[in-house]
Design a protein around this nucleic acid. Structure first.
Lengths: 299, 299
DNA sequence: CGATCTTACGGGATTCGTAAACATA
DNA sequence: TATGTTTACGAATCCCGTAAGATCG
């Protein structure tokens, strides 16, 4: 007792045509093959579906009942299949990524806009959170992959270098440091500093690079946009990732790269180790890799 | 691209077991046959449904999406199939019959009660109407078959003898006719007569059998039960079909058979000529034939 | 090295199409 | 007799199971 979808299609074709020969040609089958398809369906169901003589073919009561079910089943079935096909050809799908707020605010928008224009049917979900929650979202399956500052290589996760990010010193143009030819950590340490939260990767890089100096913290905030506002208001200076400079564009600010030892933030793409991407995720992965800020040699 | 229900079942088995070997045994297949079933499904859908390595099998994002659809489709499919099976084994179904009011009131109830007890899952629909509408219900497909007093043999319909029905004279016990040894039409014609409507088969038989006598009509009503009430009230007498005598049981009434020439009503079972019965209708047909009032020789 | 999925391949079942047989208006 | 369904049968295809191969932990 194995009923196939072709038998259902044959049944519906016959139900609509009420004629074996025509229905057979609709199904691209010889009339005899078609006939045995119907016969086998009736044997499987143990029910006569059509009253037929050489001149007339009509549904039985059971046939009419089955007609409703068969159409419903086939409609759902076809919907499911074409849904899959749509995903295969990227007409539909969903990509969920988690990435650092700095990337989300500066690099991502243009990349995402282009991707969405190229694949309007693909839904996109973005989580702009710090590295730890980024990784957690990948681990829990909420995100297809993450761009984070943690090289999360575990039995479960796999990381690959995505890009590296320098840092810039930002201060007001009327600040004494703006005129300094080449500020060193100790020069910067002389002034009030606007810090990010200790849990941010940026903060950790800066703390590490300026040791044994410690920047005098006037303020500790969570968002780079807030840092920008504070610096512009003259509350202090800061050192921020180059990828986030877009948020510091302002005529009042002086922005210069700093090349202190070790002060290069590496950003990794983190994904499940043994779980392939969906077609949509694969597509966005390729798109993002092709547009990453600046390639670095693979580790 | 031909996806079978077995592939859907295989998919769900693998989705639940996350292990080819176990899922294969659940499906009573060798592991290799099972593997190719899954591979072909993935090829048909052009989508990878499982992330698998030698140690682990997991659904992909597309796989999880398809899982929902596959379960829904299979559930509907199985429901449709078992619905048909239930009808085949008479656990379910529907029979619709049309029959004369006299049969519906007297003969049918016990027959129907027994049938319903034997096949509680089969729904029953009864139309107790005169012969013409009976036939019309069969023609229009509202009734599976009819028991009527018309031998409706047309290109569309087929009639077979079902039973024959005598007539009884009914009057009050204190009526002069009650003492008459053998009432003839002319004896009866001397008294007020309660008639049925001219469109009823009973009336037509009586009019034909009493020619050239005409019964003096005091009343013309539609229902035999009304005739019973009128006769019992002493408004007149009547001649009614023997099959409907149940409605005339009363200590006040005298009931005697009359054997006038031609006064035998033949009742036919009428069905579509080229349309088989549903399983349920076939079953009730057999049941009814086995319990018909009195068999007559087949024409 | 062991457990597990994939690939290769021969045999058997299924299904197809042609053509003849059959049924009905 | 003409039209249309069923049956018969050889051929192509599909599908299964055994067994060897590949892969990952």
């Amino acid at each position: 007792m194995n009923i196939s979808t072709r038998q259902l299609r044959a049944f519906i074709a016959l139900s609509e045509n009420r004629n074996f020969t025509r229905a057979a040609s609709v199904c691209h089958l010889s009339q005899s093959a078609f006939s045995s398809l119907i016969r086998q369906l009736e044997e499987s169901l143990k029910v006569r579906l059509f009253d037929r003589n050489t001149r007339n073919v009509e549904l039985t009561a059971e046939g009419r009942e089955f007609d409703l079910s068969a159409r419903r089943v086939l409609a759902e079935f076809d919907a499911a299949v074409s849904n899959m096909h749509a995903r295969a050809v990227l007409e539909r799908g969903r990509v969920s990524i988690a990435l650092l707020p700095s990337l989300a605010a500066d690099w991502l928008p243009a990349v995402l806009a282009g991707f969405h224009a190229a694949h309007p049917g693909i839904d996109l979900a973005v989580a702009d959170v710090l590295s730890e929650p980024c990784i957690e979202r990948v681990r829990s399956g909420q995100a297809d992959f993450a761009l984070a500052a943690i090289r999360a290589d575990t039995p479960e996760l796999r990381a690959e270098p995505f890009c590296s990010d320098g840092f810039h010193l930002v201060c007001r143009k009327d600040h004494p440091l703006a005129a300094h030819p080449k500020p060193r950590p100790r020069d910067v340490a002389a002034w009030p500093f606007i810090h990010l939260s200790r849990t941010s990767s940026v903060r950790q890089y800066i703390d590490a690079a300026t040791l044994p100096q410690a920047m005098p913290a006037v303020l500790e905030v969570d968002q780079l946009a807030t840092v920008a506002g504070m610096v512009e208001a003259g509350l202090g200076i800061s050192v921020v990732p180059s990828l986030a400079l877009y948020q510091f564009r302002s005529a009042k600010l002086s922005i210069r790269p700093v090349k202190w030892a070790g002060l290069t933030r590496r950003i990794y793409l983190v994904r499940k180790r043994d779980q392939g991407f969906s077609a949509a995720a694969e597509c966005f992965y390729d798109w993002a890799m092709a547009r990453r800020p600046q390639p670095i040699k693979s580790a």
